[in-house]
Design a protein around this nucleic acid. Sequence first.
DNA 1: CATATATACTCCACAAATGGAATATGAGAG
DNA 2: CTCTCATATTCCATTTGTGGAGTATATATG
Lengths: 195, 195
Amino acid sequence: MSLKHAILVALSEGPKSGYDVAKKFDESIGFFWRARHSQIYREMGKIKETGLAVAEEVPQSGKPNRIVFTITDEGKEALLQWSREPSDPPEMKDLFLVQFYGIESIDLDALRQNLMRRIETHQDRQAEYEVKHKLLEDSSSLADLGQQLALEVGMRWEYQWVDWCTKALERLAPEAIAGMTNVVPFQQEGKKNAE
Amino acid sequence: MSLKHAILVALSEGPKSGYDVAKKFDESIGFFWRARHSQIYREMGKIKETGLAVAEEVPQSGKPNRIVFTITDEGKEALLQWSREPSDPPEMKDLFLVQFYGIESIDLDALRQNLMRRIETHQDRQAEYEVKHKLLEDSSSLADLGQQLALEVGMRWEYQWVDWCTKALERLAPEAIAGMTNVVPFQQEGKKNAE
DNA sequence: CATATATACTCCACAAATGGAATATGAGAG
DNA sequence: CTCTCATATTCCATTTGTGGAGTATATATG
């Protein structure tokens, strides 16, 4: 379980309703851990049941009542314990890159288009990270340093993608691959090759 | 469904059993799309049922018979179609980065240790990618260019991590954060703050 | 006056992924 | 001679995540 910890991080900042946590995910934590509101509400129920937070219903007029969760000492302890566990880097999970392993069986023009699309997307995302990062750069609190560092991973990641896509497009340009010899020409034109 | 396509990429290279595909995932495709053997076997069953591959039982003595799957024209067409769909970049999903959003509530020493651990892990992975990449660098076939490009994403990724972790360690060194003022000192020492 | 948006939560069917156990045997290491 | 490793597949309980529908009201937009 891991969404649990992401929610506890959100609650560590201060008491929050499910709605608040979902917003928090949208604007910050979600850069590195996405979750839908349905998932968040479900998980917050479990967090309450296991005593990592307590819930308090706050009446509101008109709108449905807020159910505000406050992290308990057990919750804080769970966060500390979690941060002490060794953290394994996540896997890269990107089917687009898998396409490159089957590059002879796919539509190269479509691949080029997707590379161009990605350049735009990653540029946009990079800009988004940079805006968030700029807002923090004058600060010298530990909390903001943490956010800065996280955002910098995002910025680097997006920058690398833009750069890589650009270079890939050059190396996959029709002129570049025109004279390419298929050194190991397995499986051409539907011919079967027995293993 | 996406594992389906990753498996079709594996089959596009030549006929394979579930075991072969699982191995292929371990040594190449799995860098960018992990799957357990149980998942692969199940998905290959579906691929057969939907006519994207045909299965043939190859008797063996001693060991269980191999069930060898060969991609059909429909399967090849599915690959082409898939490559024509717009591909959205994957989300970054890394709880370690989420910890930075709750940096005031976690164990900073443990965080530093995890940063050091990551440096090692990413260096190892980078070396692994580089070995695979070196094996291909003399080749000038399209298939190998595809693999090279994919591996280069991996190499860049790992390099960035090593670099970022190193710099993060400097900025989070005890001396560096000693005089740090909590500009917005919400939620200290268990004090509640009303919204 | 209608419609969209923001607030706030509950519930559910479904898909996908995890992490094994179970079955069966040959080959090589110690 | 035992034990582990590699081969090869099936099956399943459980967790996690997706993608909504449904309930309810205030405020702003056109």
